[in-house]
């Protein structure tokens, strides 16, 4: 037991392999940088952070709504305020996410090995849309009933009705407050780690300029 201390360098180890894997791809200086290239000094790069800030407000207000329940968010003044915060932070989230998408699209930010970062962003976008749809179905008012009655035809025509009943509040609410938020959180963390690992993409060089 004690003689293994000095000779462990050659022993195969999941821990060491994981440490080496992370250390090569995401050193701490890349993960928590205190300086950025000069080209990052543009308001376009603020949209991604604004999206995350909006998501934080969505999550915070959503946790409060889930804790106190539908009657509270429909009847009490504070509940209606938090309900409104949840709704408007979602609007901000989608607006900033689309502005972030426009910025990354026009600078072709999938270049130089960043395609997986782009693809994870696309998946986050799609999951966000499904989350918003289930959110509209979880309002517990006539609006959500109307949306559900119409949405059932759309989802049934796609075959998804075999798995999802949009008129089932429990199923939609569970998906909205548990499964999809967990997925979004994991994907957003992965997206940020991918950005930090590769760094911000260089601007597209104009003609006559050196690389």
């Amino acid at each position: 037991m004690s003689e293994s201390i000095g000779t462990e360098a050659e022993v195969p180890s999941w821990t060491r392999a994981t440490r080496d894997f992370i250390g090569k791809r995401l050193p701490l200086a890349h993960f928590l940088p205190d300086r950025q290239p000069a080209y990052v000094g543009s308001w376009v790069y603020v949209f991604g952070v604004a999206t995350i800030a909006s998501l934080a407000w969505v999550m915070l207000s959503g946790v409060i709504l889930a804790f106190f329940g539908p009657q509270w968010w429909h009847v009490t003044g504070l509940g209606r305020f938090v309900n409104s915060v949840h709704f408007w932070s979602v609007q901000a989230l989608f607006i900033f996410m689309v502005l972030h998408l426009w910025g990354q699209y026009f600078m072709a930010s999938w270049r130089d090995g960043r395609a997986p970062t782009w693809m994870v962003g696309v998946v986050i976008w799609l999951v966000m849309i499904v989350t918003a749809f289930t959110g509209y179905l979880s309002q517990q008012n006539f609006d959500s009933q109307w949306i559900g009655v119409n949405a059932k035809d759309a989802i049934n025509s796609s075959g998804g009705g075999a798995f999802f009943n949009v008129l089932n509040f429990g199923q939609m609410y569970g998906i909205h407050v548990m499964l999809l938020p967990i997925g979004i959180t994991v994907l957003v963390i992965l997206h940020i780690v991918q950005v930090r690992a590769k760094g911000v993409v260089r601007p597209i060089e104009g003609k006559g300029r050196g690389a």
């Binding site: 000094g41 543009s42 308001w43 949209f47 607006i95 502005l99």
Partner: peptide, 24 residues
């Protein structure tokens, strides 16, 4: 109105100068 506002904000983000640190 929302889409027009987004286009406007995007254009302003490209045009407006970003405040840089004095210790560049």
């Amino acid at each position: 109105i929302v889409i027009g506002g987004m286009v406007l904000v995007f254009a302003l983000a490209l045009i407006l100068p970003f405040p840089h640190s004095t210790s560049t």
